[in-house]
């Protein structure tokens, strides 16, 4: 037994505490599961928090319809393995129903309208708490968010009027129709997440590791070729050895050139990277406050 707990142990203890608080304070707490490393880490922590009992949360996946094939395979395998219920909210269904409208124009994507589907799923399933893998080091608006983050009946975040959050006393009181977003790994950095994945031996989708992939060069990063994007004039698919630092909608998640094909080499690489991990996501590049604006409308 180590006498001095490491920084990682402290972050783990904090996250487990937060996850248990969410379970204790809400009626229908769930985990927003994107298939990315952060939501996988949150799910792993949730298992640890309740062992030897099973994980008491359903996993919610908002399916944009534009997925890496592997994300869906991984998701289905993962929920079976941990024995959790899976709730899927489909963006395509929202579009078919007419509650969401596909963005037009060459830069159109489904990132923003995910919020519609997410809020519809929250309503339909009577979810009052969504835990997610959001971290404060990801983005400047996220840096401002509480562990227990209140959402009004329209799913909106009000950054100018957040509740005080004292010590570890989280206040999940709400009015009917309102809900909370809870962020157990708020205080983790990308580096902490990777070290934790290694320490715990957590399995990840292979998209995080370098391999030859068909890509095009668009908006300053390598975008994977898929059925969901149409090539623009001058774009030629080529094969490059790349990996992804974050996983999201396949039409906007760019990869980086890399030879890191093992956990150790990925960690060594992340240590030297001078760009943030969201630097390759088109959704964040739109304007100075694009994340804040999306969060105000119910985005994660």
């Amino acid at each position: 037994m180590k006498e001095q707990p490491s920084f990682l142990d402290e972050l783990e203890a904090e996250a487990i505490f937060v996850i248990r608080e969410a379970y204790a304070q809400f009626e229908r707490p769930t985990i927003l599961f994107s298939g990315g490393k952060d939501s996988i880490v949150v799910s792993h922590l949730a298992q640890k928090a309740f062992a030897p009992a099973g994980i008491p949360f359903a996993l919610v996946h908002v399916d944009t319809g534009h997925n890496f094939a592997e994300t869906l395979e991984f998701r289905d395998r993962y929920v079976k393995q941990i024995g959790a219920e899976l709730i899927v909210g489909s963006v395509q269904d929202s579009i078919n129903r007419g509650t969401a409208q596909e963005e037009q124009g060459p830069l159109g994507n489904r990132n923003r309208i995910q919020s519609v589907t997410l809020l519809e799923t929250i309503d339909r399933e009577r979810i009052d708490c969504l835990m997610g893998g959001g971290r404060r080091d990801e983005e400047k608006a996220r840096a401002k968010e509480r562990f227990f983050s209140h959402r009004d009946a329209f799913g909106q975040w009000d950054p100018k009027n957040q509740r005080p959050e004292l010590w570890n006393l989280f206040n999940g009181a709400k009015q009917p129709g309102e809900h909370f977003r809870v962020f157990p790994i708020s205080n983790w950095t990308e580096m902490n997440v990777w070290h934790y994945i290694r320490q715990e031996g957590i399995e990840l989708p292979s998209l995080y590791f370098a391999a030859p992939r068909q890509v095009i060069w668009r908006n300053g990063s390598w975008l994977p070729v898929s059925d969901f994007i149409s090539l623009r004039a001058g774009e030629v698919p080529i094969t490059k050895t790349i990996r992804f630092r974050t996983l999201g909608d396949i039409t906007i998640t760019g990869g980086i050139e890399s030879d890191a094909d093992t956990l150790d080499s990925v960690i060594a690489e992340v240590e030297t990277l001078r760009q943030t991990e969201r630097g390759n996501r088109e959704d964040d590049k739109r304007s100075e406050s694009s994340m804040e604006e999306r969060k105000k409308q119910g985005y994660f």
């Binding site: 404060r136 080091d137 840096a143 401002k144 950054p159 708020s186 205080n187 950095t189």
Partner: peptide
Amino acid sequence: TIDVAYRY
């Protein structure tokens, strides 16, 4: 500044 920002 309006609300706390956390940095690492």
